[in-house]
Design a protein around this nucleic acid. Structure first.
Lengths: 190, 190
DNA sequence: TATAAATGAGCGAGTACTCGCTCTATAGCA
DNA sequence: TGCTATAGAGCGAGTACTCGCTCATTTATA
């Protein structure tokens, strides 16, 4: 009966926010984000009730994209090592291909503008990987650490790996392999 | 011939900045920092020419304190594994004892207000550890990765460990040992 | 035509930093 | 050992600017 909201504009705002926040931090002004998105500043507030809401939505938007990247061809039937390797590879590949999104995720995570609830919601998407690790710990294949600890180790070593690839793209293969080797040795039961 | 600057006030400002930035991020207002330090806002600018300068000095201030913590009883003559373990233990201990400083270091590091030069200067203090790792790689004791990569692995695994200890202080010993075990397995030559 | 999206000037609450002033530790002198 | 001149620390109201957000108006769609 009236003018409908446009999904395109919502995404334009989110993508503009990624650009601006990657470069200038979470304090990037809404005026600038709107300008880059090609909408009026007022419109930003018809799609997001306030800036905090935008930041929380942005966090979930990026996490969801990452999830799709990692899960689209997830090899459910292969060995645990192969599945973990697949998760590692797709994560690193995504991070290298999307440096801004990776930075924004990190900045948002540290910003105390993103609520705990949002963060929890963001990790739920990765339940498959979480469960796989959990089962492998029970098997005795992996060290008997809490699953959340093993996941966090994966995250931090993958992040470190991506940082080195970002600083030296010619060595992408080398650092990806070295990183995984270190990670696997760290978690596998000796 | 005139009134001398007070080292106490300078430190009061730096410590107030730690408190405020840990809680509210690098955008914590200078007015608030000055108030908590117990000095006039104007005085803040006689000790630091602008806010960026304050942030860079703060970064070095914290790094220096960390260095002292890690190096004060560094066992130069012991085995490599013991020295690395000592570095790990003192780092984790410092981080657990100084959660705010650890957060501030992370926030500053991500903020693009701290210059590359400052960051370089901040890592120079840890040359001893860097060299030890470098020699141990040459020995064949550690995996043949770039020393900077091995150092980064240590940093990120120690950080992850501290996060888990922070969330579960009763398990301090457990996570410290588990973290080191994972770290050592990750870097030692198989 | 009724409704809601779209807009950007405008608002008030901050922001980093300045400025004119006061206060005080020291140097120099007797 | 006092006394004073002086550089510069200390201060916080003021300044120019930026921020998130609103609202009156215009535009597009069911």
């Amino acid at each position: 009966m009236a003018r409908p909201k446009s999904e395109d504009k919502q995404k334009a705002i989110l993508n503009a926010a990624i650009q601006e926040i990657a470069e200038h931090g979470v304090s990037a002004p809404t005026a600038r984000i709107a300008k880059i998105a090609g909408v009026g500043e007022g419109s930003l507030f018809t799609y997001f009730s306030n800036k905090d809401e935008l930041l929380n939505q942005l966090y979930l938007y990026i996490k969801e994209e990452l999830r799709e990247s990692m899960m689209s061809d997830y090899p459910k039937t292969e060995s645990v090592q192969n599945r973990i390797r697949h998760a590692w590879n797709t994560y690193v590949k995504w991070g290298v291909a999307n440096p801004q999104k990776r930075i924004v995720l990190a900045k948002l995570g540290m910003s105390n503008k993103v609520s705990e609830q949002t963060k929890t919601q963001g990790s739920e998407a990765f339940a498959d990987i979480f469960n796989m690790i959990s089962e492998s710990t029970a098997n005795g294949l992996l060290r008997n650490y809490p699953t959340s600890f093993l996941s966090a180790i994966m995250g931090s070593l993958a992040d470190t790996t991506m940082n080195f690839i970002a600083g030296n793209p010619a060595q992408t293969e080398y650092f990806n392999n070295a990183g995984f080797e270190a990670f696997w040795s760290a978690i596998v039961n000796a």
